[in-house]
């Protein structure tokens, strides 16, 4: 028996919004420590890794490890049937071929349940090596989303160059070029608005705009985003899922031919 409950469905809605552009289907691996999802996008350029810890749920029970293959568009349809403040309970029997989403209104005057067929997905699991990153940048997630959106107008790629002084995002194309420099903030009173840079060595890498913009669909989850970079390895873009865990996106860099 698997059962996981969240007091408000809005968190699950936001998590789905954050992954549905990149993935059509995904396997949710459930164990007593929580729910894990790891999947590449169709083009194998990026990888999504989602961790939702069992102790972050309002109720969590997982008697046996189960993997639930779900179509994310179908899951979105079902979650649309829930009000943001409805309690959501995800339930599945061991060896079940369906998963049930139960929504309960706060006043307990409306209870609905939706069963969704599970899929057998043959997904590859990749081993992600531990990396000591040369640069780790923390900045407001809204600012990062704004920069990715703005620079996408200029070209298909965004250069991210990090030094002690700050981070420079740049793009160029037919209409011209764009540069946005973000400096480390000295005001630490408002942590959510701060920009911090931990740098061992300067790094400059180039990434596809399209993927960065897909990652920013996670912005509503967290006021801050963390970007981790080293030469010639994938960029890691991490958002916290409050009280539950995190979502990490790995993006392969563009490299010299």
């Amino acid at each position: 028996m698997f059962e996981a409950r969240l007091d408000s469905s809005v968190t699950l809605k936001k998590v789905l919004e954050a992954i549905k552009d990149l993935l059509n289907d995904a396997s949710f691996d459930c164990s007593d420590t929580g729910i894990q999802l790891q999947a590449m996008d169709n083009s194998h350029v990026s990888l999504v890794s989602l961790t939702l810890k069992s102790d972050g749920f309002d109720k969590y029970r997982c008697d046996r490890n189960i993997t639930m293959g779900m179509n994310l568009a179908s899951m979105v349809k079902i979650l649309k049937c829930a009000n943001n403040d409805d309690t959501v309970t995800i339930k599945a029997q061991d060896d079940a071929d369906t998963v049930t989403f139960m929504f309960e209104s706060k006043k307990q005057d409306k209870i609905s349940d939706y069963a969704m067929k599970l899929m057998n997905l043959d997904q590859e699991h990749l081993g992600i090596p531990d990396t000591d990153f040369s640069c780790v940048i923390r900045m407001p997630s809204i600012e990062f989303a704004r920069i990715c959106r703005d620079l996408a107008q200029f070209g298909e790629s965004i250069g991210i160059a990090c030094t002690k002084e700050g981070v420079k995002f740049s793009a160029s194309g037919d209409i011209g070029s764009a540069n946005v420099k973000i400096a480390q903030t000295s005001n630490f009173e408002k942590e959510e608005e701060s920009v911090t840079i931990e740098m061992q060595e300067p790094v400059a890498l180039t990434f596809a705009c399209q993927y960065l913009n897909s990652f920013t669909k996670a912005t509503p989850l967290s006021p801050q985003v963390q970007l981790s970079m080293s030469d010639n390895v994938p960029l890691v873009v991490e958002y916290t899922v409050p009280e539950l865990g995190h979502i990490r996106y790995y993006l392969a860099p563009k490299i010299e031919e």
Binding site: V45, G127, P129, S157, P234, L251, A252, K254, I255, E257
Partner: peptide
């Protein structure tokens, strides 16, 4: 000119 690499160039199948 830069070309897009694949995530599988960096992370290997378990």
């Amino acid at each position: 000119n830069k070309s897009q690499s694949s995530i599988k160039d960096f992370f290997h199948t378990k």
